[in-house]
Design a protein around this nucleic acid. Structure first.
Lengths: 232, 232
DNA sequence: CGCTATGTTGATCCATATCAATAAGTGTGG
DNA sequence: CCACACTTATTGATATGGATCAACATAGCG
C-alpha cells in the first residue's frame, strides 16, 4: 500500500491510538480500491472477509427480503461498515453498494480480530465505534416506531440543515427515491409529505430545500436529543 | 456482596474471561437488588451510572416521544442492558422497567470503563456483546421495514415456538398488549393478525398457541436466517 | 364475588401503498 | 445542439394496512 494511503488510514479515529507495528500488521493485507457508482460491494449473507472503510464517496447499506428492499443507512467518510460482522466473524446482515464513485479501504477481518486481541488502544476504539453504531440504530428504530412518515421527514430536514451548516437553504444529499426508502416510505408518499410540510415553513424545489421558519418547523417536528442528535 | 452472588455473576459470559482481581474491582462497587414488577429502573436521558445485568425475571426496554411509547426489546437472563451508554458514558436512549419480579445486578459504569481499559479478556467480551446487540437491532429494523405486521407476527410465532422447545403447543411469554408494541402495532390489530393467521395453521386461545402445520406457516412467513436467527 | 385490566369484535377513519398517467430532468448518440 | 430514451419526480385515483373509538367479553385478582 502506498505511503500516502497508509498515512491517511492511520489518521482515522479507529486506528489512531494503536501501536505502530500492530497497525503495520493490519495494513499488510489491506488495500484501497476505487469503485464506480452503483457497484454492489457486499451481499447480505456473505461471510465477512474484510472490514470496509469509506475514505471518499458514499455507500448505501440496504437489506432485502421477499423481493422487497429497503435502505438502512448511508455511510459517509470517514467511517467503517460491517464492523459487527467482522468482530464476530458472522455473515453480513446488510448488502452495500456505492452511491457515487468511492474509495474504499478493505482490511482483512482475520487481521482485525487478531490485532484487536493484542492492542488495547485498538480494542477501545472498536468498542467506541460499535457502541456508537448501536446507538444510531436505536435512534433510527425510535424514529420509525414513534413517528409518522411526515414527522420523520421534518426531523430529517432539520438534521440535514444543521449538517449543511445552518444556512436557510441547502441541498438534499441524495435522491428523493432513496431518501424515501431511508425514511421508510414510498417516493410518492415522500412527495406528499413535502407538500404537507409547506404549511410548516418548508419550501422544496427539486433537491433545493429552504426552511423559511426553523422555529415553526421545530414546533411541528419536535426534535429530540435522544433521537435526532447525531453526535452522541 | 455475598459470595453466592459474586460467583453467580462471575460465571456470566461477559465476566468469564477476565482476571480475578479485575473482577473483584468491578464487584466492589456493585450490588444485586430484587425489584417488584413494573418498576421503572432507568429513564431515557438519564446519565448511565450503572451497567445493569438481568439475573432473573425480565425487563422491558421502551422509548417515548411526544406522548407515544413503544417497546423496543425485552431483556431476559442472563444479559446486560445499556452497555453502549455505559462504555460511551452517554445518556440512556431507552427507559427500562421490570415486567415481573426481577433480580438485577448493578455495576458502576465508571468501574466498567476503567477495567475495560486494562483487561483484554473483558474488552473482548464487551465487544462481542455489543456486536451482538447491534446485530439484533439491525434484525429488528429489517423486520419492521420489510414486513407487514401480520408477517412479523407469523415469524415471531415461529421463533417463539423454537425457543419454547419445538413442541406443537407453547405459551406466549408475555402479554399480548406488549407483544403488539414490540411488533409495532396496536393490541386490536394484533387480535386481527392472529385471526388472519388461522388460515395458515395457527390456533390461538389466550396465551396458548398451537402451530398445527409449521411448514404451512413457514410458507407464509418466509423466515430468514438474516432476520430471524437469534443466535448469530 | 365484583373490580379492574386485558383481550376481542365491530365500525369507522386515517396513513400510507399501489397503480396509472404525466412531467421534468438527465444522459446519449447522431 | 437536438431528438430520443430513460430514469426520477409529481399528481391523481383508488386500495389496503393499520389506528382509533366504542362496546363488550374475559380473565386475574383482592
Amino acid at each position: 500500500m502506498p505511503e500516502r494511503e497508509y498515512q491517511e488510514i492511520r489518521q482515522l479515529h479507529l486506528f489512531e491510538a494503536m501501536a505502530e507495528d500492530n497497525f503495520a500488521t493490519l495494513m499488510r493485507g489491506a488495500f484501497v480500491q476505487t469503485f464506480p457508482p452503483m457497484v454492489e460491494l457486499i451481499t447480505e449473507g456473505d461471510p465477512s472477509d474484510f472490514l470496509h472503510v469509506v475514505l471518499s464517496g458514499s455507500v448505501d447499506l440496504f437489506a432485502t427480503w421477499n423481493d422487497r428492499e429497503t435502505s438502512m443507512v448511508t455511510v459517509r467518510p470517514v467511517s467503517t461498515f460491517i464492523l459487527a460482522a467482522t468482530v464476530l466473524d458472522a455473515p453480513y446482515l446488510m448488502s452495500a453498494r456505492t452511491l457515487e464513485k468511492s474509495r474504499i479501504a478493505l482490511i482483512p477481518s482475520r487481521e482485525v480480530r487478531a490485532v484487536f486481541d493484542v492492542d488495547i488502544g485498538f480494542a477501545r476504539a472498536i468498542v467506541a465505534e460499535l457502541a456508537q453504531c448501536y446507538r444510531s440504530v436505536i435512534k433510527v428504530q425510535k424514529d420509525l416506531k414513534l413517528r409518522t412518515s411526515t414527522e420523520r421527514l421534518a426531523n430529517y430536514l432539520l438534521r440535514a440543515q444543521a449538517r449543511a451548516g445552518q444556512g436557510e437553504d441547502f441541498d438534499l444529499d441524495f435522491e428523493k427515491r432513496r431518501l424515501a426508502s431511508v425514511l421508510g416510505m414510498t417516493p410518492e408518499h415522500l412527495s406528499r409529505a413535502f407538500r404537507g410540510l409547506q404549511s410548516h415553513g418548508v419550501v422544496a424545489q427539486g433537491s433545493r430545500i429552504r426552511i423559511a421558519d426553523r422555529a415553526k418547523l421545530e414546533r411541528y417536528a419536535r426534535p429530540s436529543a435522544l433521537i435526532d442528535d447525531t453526535t452522541s
